[in-house]
Design a binder for these strands. Structure first.
Lengths: 339, 339
DNA sequence: CTGTTAGCGCGTTCAG
DNA sequence: CTGAACGCGCTAACAG
C-alpha cells in the first residue's frame, strides 16, 4: 500500500504538506502542490479515509435505516437522501430492517461502530430508546416518515392524517357510506395517523363507525390480500376500500380480481403512496401521493445542517403535504341504492 | 467517547483483554469475561471499527457499483448482494452510476479510499481500466451482469444471448417475420448479446435482416418510447417488438397506447427482465426473466470466497440461465397475411 | 508557506 | 490465561 509518507518522500516534502494538498487545507505553494500532485499520480496513491477519520473524528458518512428498499416508495426516499448527501460530499450506508426492531437495533450498533456522522431513521416502532441510544453516542439523528411521541429529535414526515382525511372525503363525496380501511400495523404512526384521518372525515359526515371497519395488518402485499378477503366477507359488503399503503393496494387489487370483482364498477379502491410513474403503464389508482424524494432530501439537508451547526437550536418537525391524485379506481359518483 | 481503555479501567483489566472479549479471540476466563461484559454494558461502550480496521486491514465492507437502483431489476440484485453479505457479517456500500463512466470512476475512488475488502461492479462501459485500477489497489473485484472482453476478473452474469434467442424463436414460431429490436446502448455487453441472440434466431429462420431492424437507445422509459415511435414509422410496420429491457418495454407500451395500438391484438411485444411480481397486479408481458436476486447472491458469495482464499485460482465466469415466461403480450399464432 | 511532534482507538507481537 | 509496548495512516496543534 502506498502511504502519505511514500508520496512525501517522492515529492521531497513532509507528510503534512501532502495532507494539505489532498484536503485543500492551509496554504501550499503552487509549485510544491504540483510536485505533490505529480507524486500522487506517479505512485497511484489513494488516501486511507479510515486513518483520516480516526484522526479527524468525521467519516463523511450517514446511516439510513429504513424498512424495505424493495418498496418503490422507499427506493425513492433513498434516492432523495443519496442525492442530497452526495451533493454535500457525504456517503450513505443503507440498512433494511423489514420492520423488525431486532434488525433495527443490530444496524444501529453497526452504524455507531462505523462512526457515522449522522443517522436518518425510519423507526420500526414508536419507541424512544433507539433515539436515545444514538444521541448517547453523540450522534445526530433525524426521524423520517414517522412520529415518535415524547422523543427529542428532528422529524421530517408527510401529512398522513390530512391525506387520509381528504381521501376519505373524496369517497364520501362520491356517495360511499360503507368504507373499509385496510391499515398497516398498530404502533406505527403512519398507519395510526391514516386511521385517524379516516375516522375524522367519517365522523364529520356522521357515518356510523360500524359501517367503517378498520382492519389492521402489515404494510405488505400478502397482508393487503388477506385484509381484503376479510373485508369482503362482511355483510353488507363495503362499497369502497381504503388501502393503507401501496403494497396493501396491490394485494387488494389481486384479492378483488380473484373474487371476480371489478374496480371501480363493483367496488371503489383508493390507496396511500403512489407507485413511481416509471413503473406503471397506465396509472389507475386514486391515491394520496407523498413527496417521497423530497422527504428524503429535506431530512438529509436538515441532518447536514445540524452537523455543521447551522440548524436552529430547537428540534424541527417538518410535515410535507400529501396530494390527492384522482384516477379511475375511485370510480364515479355512486348510484343511489338500498344498503 | 467511551474507549476500550475506559472499559478496561472500569473492569480492572488491560485493554487487550477487553479486545479479546469483543472479538472472541484468544482465551479469557469466564469470570473476567463477565466483568468485562458488565463494564461494556455499564458504560454503553461501542467499539470503533475505524480503529479496528486501520489495524487489522479489513473493513468488513463491500462496495456495490450499479447503474440505477430505481430499476426494480437492480433493486432485486442489490437485495441478493445485501443478504449474502449480511449472512457473512459484511456491510455493503451502494453506488449509482446512472451509466456514467465519470460517476463510476468517482465511486471507485471513494470505495478504494474507504478500504472496502471487495467490489461488485456493474461496468458502465466495456473497458478494462476500472478493473485494473481496483486490482492495482490489491482489492478483489467481481464483475456483475456484463462481460468485459480481455479482462482478468470473475464474472457473474445472465445468459442474455440465449434468452434473446429463445424469445425471438417464440415470436418466429407465432408467425412473426417483421420484428423490430428496441435495444440498449452499444458498448454494453447485455445490449449487444441480446442483439446477437436476436440475429442468430432470425438467421436460422432465414429471415431477411432488413425485416428485422435494430434500434439502439438507452435502457430507459424515454428511450423505449422514442425507439418505438421510430419503429412504428417504418413501412411496412413491424408485427412484433422486442424490448431490450423492462424500462424500454414500459416506454414501448406507452408509445403504443398513445398511437392507439393494442397489445397483442395490433402488435406483439416481448421484453427482457421481468418486473417484480409484487409490483404488478396482472403480469401481462411475455419476457425473458433473469434470476436477479440469485445473480447478486452468487456474485457476492464468489467475492467472499476470493477474500477468504477459498475460490479456485482461475477466474470464474458464472452464467445463469434466463427463463422465458409466456404471457399475453406475445399474442396468439399470427394469422397469415400479406406483407 | 512548511515542518515537527504527538496521538486518534485498536490489535499484533512477544513476554510474563 | 493476561499484560506492555508498539505502530496502523493520517492530521490537529504548534513551531518556525
Amino acid at each position: 500500500m502506498v502511504t502519505i509518507r511514500d508520496v512525501a518522500k517522492h515529492a521531497g516534502v513532509a507528510p503534512i504538506t501532502v495532507s494539505r494538498v489532498i484536503n485543500n487545507s492551509g496554504y501550499v505553494n503552487e509549485k510544491t502542490r504540483a510536485r505533490v500532485e505529480a507524486a500522487i499520480a506517479d505512485l497511484g496513491y489513494v488516501p486511507n479515509v479510515l486513518a483520516r477519520s480516526l484522526r479527524s473524528r468525521r467519516t463523511g458518512t450517514l446511516g439510513l435505516i429504513l424498512t424495505d428498499i424493495s418498496n418503490p416508495f422507499w427506493t425513492t426516499v433513498a434516492r432523495g437522501v443519496e442525492d442530497a448527501a452526495s451533493d454535500a460530499g457525504f456517503n450513505v450506508i443503507l440498512c433494511n430492517t423489514d420492520e423488525s426492531e431486532a434488525e433495527q437495533d443490530k444496524y444501529l450498533h453497526v452504524l455507531m461502530q462505523k462512526q457515522v456522522d449522522g443517522v436518518l431513521l425510519v423507526p420500526a416502532r414508536s419507541a424512544v430508546e433507539p433515539i436515545k441510544f444514538i444521541q448517547s453516542q453523540n450522534t445526530c439523528v433525524v426521524v423520517l416518515d414517522r412520529r415518535i411521541s415524547n422523543s427529542q429529535a428532528d422529524v421530517v414526515r408527510c401529512d398522513s392524517e390530512g391525506g387520509a382525511y381528504q381521501l376519505t372525503r373524496l369517497l364520501l363525496s362520491l356517495g360511499h357510506r360503507r368504507i373499509a380501511m385496510l391499515s398497516g400495523p398498530q404502533g406505527v404512526s403512519t398507519a395510526e395517523d391514516r386511521v385517524a384521518g379516516f375516522r375524522r372525515a367519517l365522523a364529520e359526515a356522521g357515518v356510523d363507525a360500524a359501517a367503517a371497519p378498520v382492519y389492521y395488518g402489515k404494510f405488505s402485499l400478502e397482508s393487503g390480500y388477506a385484509l381484503t378477503v376479510q373485508a369482503l366477507s362482511e355483510t353488507p359488503r363495503p362499497s369502497a376500500l381504503f388501502a393503507g399503503n401501496n403494497f396493501i393496494a396491490i394485494g387488494a387489487l389481486r384479492a378483488l380480481r380473484d373474487a371476480g370483482l371489478r374496480v371501480p364498477e363493483d367496488l371503489a379502491l383508493v390507496g396511500f403512496d403512489d407507485l413511481p410513474t416509471d413503473l406503471v403503464v397506465d396509472p389507475f389508482l386514486t391515491v394520496a401521493a407523498q413527496p417521497a424524494y423530497e422527504m428524503g432530501r429535506q431530512a438529509t439537508e436538515l441532518l447536514l445542517a445540524r452537523l455543521s451547526g447551522e440548524a436552529p437550536a430547537a428540534y424541527q418537525e417538518i410535515v410535507l403535504p400529501t396530494a390527492i391524485v384522482v384516477r379511475e379506481s375511485s370510480g364515479p359518483v355512486l348510484e343511489r341504492r338500498d344498503d
